[in-house]
Design a protein around this nucleic acid. Structure first.
Lengths: 157, 157
DNA sequence: AATCATGTAACTTTAAATGATTCATGATCC
DNA sequence: GGATCATGAATCATTTAAAGTTACATGATT
């Protein structure tokens, strides 16, 4: 299957949302994420259902962050995306009648299970506020002032 | 992409190989693995290159285990398969100019890196002999004697 | 020489995210 | 109230790599 990039995309989108003074339209976000509005709507739908963001229709509508970044963990986002399949590796058919196949599948499954546990535990220890801090660090490393880069869509000529 | 099941397949194949008295043809293995000979050859090629198995052509040819199971770790097999892509999840484009995207990608990549480390460390702690023991346990749990099930292709009528 | 089995290359199939398009629905502005 | 804006959703095409398939050359055994 194709690579699933929803996770980093959504993180990226949330960081931008946090810096917006007005609701961000799907089109605007799509431009930032190098994709299109339909993908944005589809991907953000889960976050809306979980209360991380809200969306409004009509003039001046769009996406708005509904919680402070410090209250959003990466694990929460992963869940909101529907806990997408993590591995490209499979562990075979579950209901095999061959006992050797069962042993082979069980060993593979166990290694994947442990790796998945690790992954989730790392995600639950990181909040979006941590990412925002990382972003600001990157800004300063380039000698830039983050305050100069907050996004005010109403100021686009 | 489609699920990658080479790992559990190869483990399964090696367990069978260990119980063979004669070389196993790709066709025989394919029957055991519910696939076809070409896939078996393709998948086992890496194991041959790493010296885990040998293959011989012609009458009576086929695949033979080249090392005791206790000297084959699952990590070694994973490597022999070319260390296939582990995750279905991606961590975005590496060379993004957007610092927010960089922060989002870095966080995702870090979680994946840690999970991958865990995966490999579990694999390196398991040998094929462990799987063989697990297989024998499963046999005994069903009240069967593993010795009755060794495979002697020459005895197929 | 015939047969068997691997080695390899080329092509097709498959699954799932992503890209793209369309239309209905609701909110805002004039 | 009508035009416009934006989401919600459904549908269809595209993409990607493993897996399935087919074909043929090469080498070993009988």
């Amino acid at each position: 299957m194709r690579q699933d990039n929803r996770m980093p995309r959504v993180l990226h989108a949330l960081l931008h949302l946090d810096q917006m003074t007005d609701p961000a339209t799907s089109d605007l976000l799509a431009g930032m994420l190098n994709t299109n509005a339909a993908v944005v709507r589809r991907t953000m739908a889960g976050l809306r259902d979980q209360g991380f963001v809200t969306s409004t229709k009509g003039h001046g509508g769009g996406w708005v962050l509904a919680k402070p970044l410090s209250e959003i963990t990466l694990a929460g986002i992963y869940d909101a995306l529907g806990a997408p399949k993590l591995f490209a590796l499979g562990c075979g058919n579950e209901e095999s009648h061959c006992l050797m196949e069962q042993a082979a599948n069980a060993a593979t499954a166990e290694a994947l299970r442990v790796a998945s546990e690790t992954f989730l535990s790392v995600l639950s220890a990181i909040t979006m506020a941590d990412l925002a801090r990382d972003y600001e660090t990157r800004m300063k490393e380039l000698g830039l002032n983050p305050d100069d880069y907050r996004f005010d869509a109403s100021k686009i000529p």
